[in-house]
Design a protein around this nucleic acid. Sequence first.
DNA 1: TAAGCTTGCCTAAGTGACTTAGGCAAATCA
DNA 2: TGATTTGCCTAAGTCACTTAGGCAAGCTTA
Lengths: 191, 191
Amino acid sequence: MARAGLSAEVLTTTAADLADEIGFDRLTLGAVARRCGVKEPSLYSHVENAHALRVRVAGAALSDLADRIADAVAGRSGHDALSAFASAYRDYAAEHPGRFAAARMTTLPPESDAAAAARRHSDLTRALLRGYALGEPAETDAVRLIGAMVLGFVTLEAGGSYAHHPREAQASWAAAVDALDVALRNWPKGS
Amino acid sequence: MARAGLSAEVLTTTAADLADEIGFDRLTLGAVARRCGVKEPSLYSHVENAHALRVRVAGAALSDLADRIADAVAGRSGHDALSAFASAYRDYAAEHPGRFAAARMTTLPPESDAAAAARRHSDLTRALLRGYALGEPAETDAVRLIGAMVLGFVTLEAGGSYAHHPREAQASWAAAVDALDVALRNWPKGS
DNA sequence: TAAGCTTGCCTAAGTGACTTAGGCAAATCA
DNA sequence: TGATTTGCCTAAGTCACTTAGGCAAGCTTA
């Protein structure tokens, strides 16, 4: 049979695009194979199994997102950087719901490049916080707070939790970022 | 055959316990049936299908969690109430990982009692915020910020994101609650 | 170019989770 | 007690994932 020119990278991108279109939870090997014009078992020449492919999608998504964030915060600091970080994050989730769902996967294997991308995220957040001059361990706590807040907000928004109230999610988002900025500029000394 | 005394409620509790033990993602009708001492198809006399059972587990978890939170914040206000709220939330997730994972399920059907329980959560958060006297729309924004922060933090902690750094998650949690309190007491006026 | 090797894709087939159809017997009720 | 309802069963089908084994495309080497 004619070769289809597949590779782990091609499969990952195809799967990621498919996830954005139909939802990460409906992503199936059959659908990926169909889109690539091959039969299902052929995929096993390029990826170990279905779970490994999903982890690859997660890794690619985290990496893309880190690139976007790096781009957004470059040359900014303080509230400006925080806001750019948050917008880049939220915009990515809106544009790529399937990829974003993949990035939220439960426990990514430590050796995957998904884990490496996750590390880039915390490094980027640390860089962003330099303008607030928190010192340790406050900086670590702040990294975690920011990560938690953006993840939680975007997750709840995507899940429709904000749809039953007239207040625009966008407005709440801006307010949350402002509130976070207040907290960072007045970081509590305690313990 | 002897009747096993099943019902939707019994199945939901059994499934929830099982999810806490083996993980929500490994929850299967076969495992629930085995634990109940019946065959798989028998479950369909009590629940519509596997998805409906999972939604029931999510609803029960959200409801339990709301009870715990209501109990924790009763008679408290300000930082004290916020801290109690946050602890109740995080403790529940630690004690009941399977139930908590269920509660984070993507898009709960609006008519389910899961949705009703979700509403109780926002009402409880609103009550908690009375001590901060924010007014609208700030209060709605704050409800969303608190919900996002606790969900995001506990999700990341459960996913192992905080395991690679010596700083204790508990300490970061306390700091995050303090920072949130600062933000609420100095809520930005803007826009 | 031909022989040989590697490897990408195939068909066939098996497993596990979910689901439906249809039957029998236990519990309920007239 | 006889009739009805209903809870549980077996049988069987679907779908997603996976493995085994085969064939031929395309590279390697002479």
